[in-house]
Design a binder for these strands. Structure first.
Lengths: 346, 346
DNA sequence: CGGCAAATTGACTGCGAATGCGAACAAGCA
DNA sequence: TGCTTGTTCGCATTCGCAGTCAATTTGCCG
């Protein structure tokens, strides 16, 4: 019953095996697999034939050991990004793969896991790290000490020179607020993300700042957790606090906005956008679904992931490069979940 | 302006460096980092102190080269799984991490990419592979020839002994169909996934078989692509074909079911579930959202990912193990998108 | 305090591929 | 043909660590 194909040599095939079969030296084999090496076409043909015959593939581990590059990058991402997660991951991975780099995935369930992780990441001799999670200053110190290039994705340190790729959160919030104010909304609710999220902070602060700047009088802020349900509970908290429902709710991400919208319609029987305007941030897929058609700001994920990958790989080749922060504008998507003045779209 | 901390030694720290500082041999250092090795506590203390001082971390690459294990597993996943993707990935990664294995991520945009990928995967000397993508028989041959253990996630080959972890798709569809039939639905529409998806095939076939078994007369099948929009277009196709709307639409996944549901309500003004029942499969997050509350079958993702990881790691340690297929029952979630007889929930 | 077993330690080798260097060889020129 | 250039190839070494084996130390008992 055992269907094992016992005829093939099940052990690892090394460059020596290929060399022996082809009657050449191991160096020759090595050179044949190195693009741009000096090899005669006759040699290459012989080696390749032998390699094929044996099913030889160069051992990336051994190669890394001597070359000092693993062609591997760590992607650290906290899993609470939920809806947003696959898009980033796929984008990063595509860009990395195109340049011959593989992604080692590190998912964080809790931000505190990152400490244990960091050591591991570095053990694996990754060429670089792309971090879409919260890092503390000492953690950044630790990475820098190891001289591993890293890029923060959608977070940055104001007081610190680090590589970062960010969506301009405040700008996006400003657009949203401008549009809401212009349409005459007066009582504002804000549902922030978890307190330790810098993205949430920037968005919330950005919205708040603009609201104040434009003279909004009635603003309440409650905290959510970026999850769907906290959109609903956030709305409830806002209602409790205000004593009525606000005119507009600004959510720190789309997922909460969708939760808020659902709660408004189905729990409180409010018409959206007539009775209540809801806006989000991110531009995740479900935000475009017919039931929602959310007014939001879409992050240019593919440009951002491409930038992150470029930045990291440039720095792998040239560690001397100065840290750089790149900000990307989002794209306002008017949607239909907020009552806006005509042509308010940016 | 350069804030580079130039005081620390920026180069790699090896076990020799630690050994020199501690005044011991390199072997001693190595042993100190190997759990269960024979080392005196005095030695360990000295070495650890030196290691800490230098910021030494053992080089996993060198370790892999000699031990023949990379503590790395490839996770190959096609990105069109969209909503479902993060859950799987996080689950797999958590389980792998717990056992000290890192995931190398390979995302497929098109299933055809897998050929190019396979060579790469194997170059990286992964200890095993978890494949949530379509593999052809020759591709499986290729992997087996390399003697790399692999587990198929949610696909299996009927005629072939391979390791696989699957949700029992037909069983789930049977539950759904039973419930729909019991509630008196008569005209059925099925929106399948892409033709080359085995998951879609099993679900569609499963539903069809059960429908016929129970004597359903009116059944139409149209093809979708697992995406949100194809739920709507699928419904349109069904209406065109039938000349009216069906009583129930069975979608090969949740995402399409949600699209179908939205189209039914917002495009055709149908009441769901009164005029039309819609069921899906997967149990993704948004299916539980208030706007939808989809009737579906939830895959036990965390048990499945755990099983996949166990299977793969068992086979890394013991390559002789016979191939095994594990099937998991889903969980029927009655929801509110289908008109069901009372207490029809399994 | 001698003697023996057990525990601990260090020298050395090898994992598999890449590369500097010199040898061998081919091509170009007078 | 003899000599110079330029290619191509093999030898030997290297990457960083783990495991083997023999040497050494330690502990323990009579």
């Amino acid at each position: 019953m055992a269907s094992t194909t016992a005829e093939s040599p099940r052990q690892r095939v090394t460059s020596y095996d290929v060399a022996r079969l082809a009657g050449v030296s191991q160096s020759a084999v090595s050179r044949c697999f190195k693009p741009g090496a000096s090899v005669s076409r006759k040699m290459r043909a012989r080696v390749m034939k032998a390699a094929e015959q044996l099913g030889y593939q160069p051992n990336a581990i051994a190669r890394s050991l001597i070359s000092g590059r693993s062609n591997t990058a760590a992607v650290v991402i906290s899993s609470n990004t939920a809806l947003y997660f696959p898009e980033i991951l796929v984008g990063l991975n595509r860009n990395l793969a195109q340049r011959g780099v593989r992604a080692l995935l590190f998912t964080l369930e809790q931000e505190s896991d990152i400490d244990r992780l960091l050591d591991q990441v570095l053990q694996y001799q990754v060429d670089g790290m792309i971090v879409a999670a919260r890092l503390s200053a000492p953690q950044i110190d630790a990475i820098e000490r190891r001289a591993v290039p890293f890029v923060l994705y959608n977070r940055s340190f104001r007081d610190r020179q680090v590589n970062a790729v960010c969506c301009d959160q405040s700008e996006g919030e400003r657009w949203l607020v401008d549009a809401l104010i212009e349409a005459g909304h007066q009582r504002f609710g804000i549902i922030s993300g978890p307190g330790d999220s810098s993205v949430s902070m920037e968005r919330t602060e950005g919205a708040l700042a603009r609201l104040r700047e434009l003279g909004a009088k009635h603003i309440s802020v409650v905290e959510g957790d970026f999850g769907y349900h906290s959109g609903g509970t956030g709305l409830k908290k806002l209602r409790d606090r205000i004593g009525a429902h606000p005119d507009a709710v600004i959510c720190a991400n789309d997922t909460m906005a969708l939760g808020c919208l659902d709660a408004a319609r189905h729990e409180y029987g409010l018409a959206v956008p007539e009775d209540l305007s809801v806006v989000g941030f991110d531009g995740v897929g479900p935000a475009r679904w017919t039931s929602y058609n959310l007014t939001t700001v879409r992050q240019p994920v593919s440009r951002m992931t491409e930038a992150a990958v470029s930045m990291i790989l440039e720095r792998v080749d040239n560690p001397q490069l100065q840290p750089e922060k790149r900000f990307f504008s989002g794209e306002m998507i008017p949607g239909n979940s907020a009552r806006l003045a005509p042509a308010a779209a940016r």
